[in-house]
Simulated scan of single mutants.
Amino acid sequence: MKLHWSPKSPYVRKVMVCAHELGLVERLELVRSVAAMLTPNERLMQDNPLSKIPALVLDDGTVLLDSVVICEYLNALADGTLFPAAPEYKWHSLRWHALGDGLLDTLILWRNERERETPLPMLLQAFERKTVACLALFDQEAERLTAAPFAIGHVAIACALGYLDFRFDAFGWRERAARLAHWYADVEARPSIQATAPGPG
């Protein structure tokens, strides 16, 4: 399988965390792909017309798009437990997955806006308010996160918090969410999280 990949993309990181957790890393051929918003990547578009990563090209040529789909495919391929079937875990995990991805979407828009020549203050404030609200919610649910088996919701939230550290280090999210920070400290120790930390390139 061929994975269009970047060491800085939090969505690619989600896929790689899952691959590590499921023992599938060795089956992935990582293809370094740049997916800049203003410059469509012609090579990448041969597999994904949206010029976005991650994109997973299966051995039969089928291309799976979006981290949500790719993570679920890898879990099914390995008969894994990252997408729980039991109702008492399934819906919490999928909800956390959606919230973690939503926070990532917000953070990427926030970063793009702040790097514009003339950022719009109202947009910056809106992105910050949404981020603070997500952190407050995750902080309230830190005990439930700890009690639940590690699954895709944990992966998404961990990747969002890692992106905060990577791109918003001055934001100081840990001071705003102490219980969440305690949970994340344990998650950060997982080999899959350590192996996928954002890097240069």
Rank of each mutant, 00 (worst) to 15 (best):
M1F: 11
P10S: 02
R13L: 11
R13Q: 02
K14T: 09
V15D: 00
C18Y: 06
H20D: 14
H20T: 04
H20N: 10
L22A: 06
L22R: 11
G23W: 02
V25R: 10
R27N: 12
E29A: 04
L30W: 11
L30R: 09
V31Y: 04
R32P: 05
M37K: 15
M37L: 15
T39V: 12
N41F: 10
N48G: 14
L50Y: 13
S51Y: 08
L56N: 02
V57C: 09
D60Y: 12
D66K: 03
D66Y: 06
S67I: 09
V68M: 08
V68N: 11
Y73A: 05
N75H: 03
A76S: 10
L77S: 10
L77G: 05
A78K: 04
G80K: 08
T81C: 11
L82V: 14
Y89S: 07
G100V: 04
G100T: 10
L103Q: 11
D105P: 08
D105W: 00
T106A: 08
W110D: 14
R111E: 06
R114P: 06
E115K: 13
R116D: 05
R116M: 13
T118R: 15
P119R: 06
L120G: 10
A126I: 04
F127C: 06
K130W: 14
V132W: 00
C134L: 07
L137I: 05
D139R: 15
D139F: 01
Q140T: 11
E141Q: 15
P149W: 10
I157Q: 00
A158E: 08
A160M: 07
A160Q: 07
A160P: 02
L161E: 02
F166R: 01
F168Y: 14
A170W: 01
F171D: 11
A178H: 08
W183C: 08
D186H: 14
V187P: 04
E188K: 12
A189V: 00
P191K: 13
S192R: 01
S192D: 09
S192M: 03
S192W: 01
A197M: 13
P198S: 03
P200N: 15
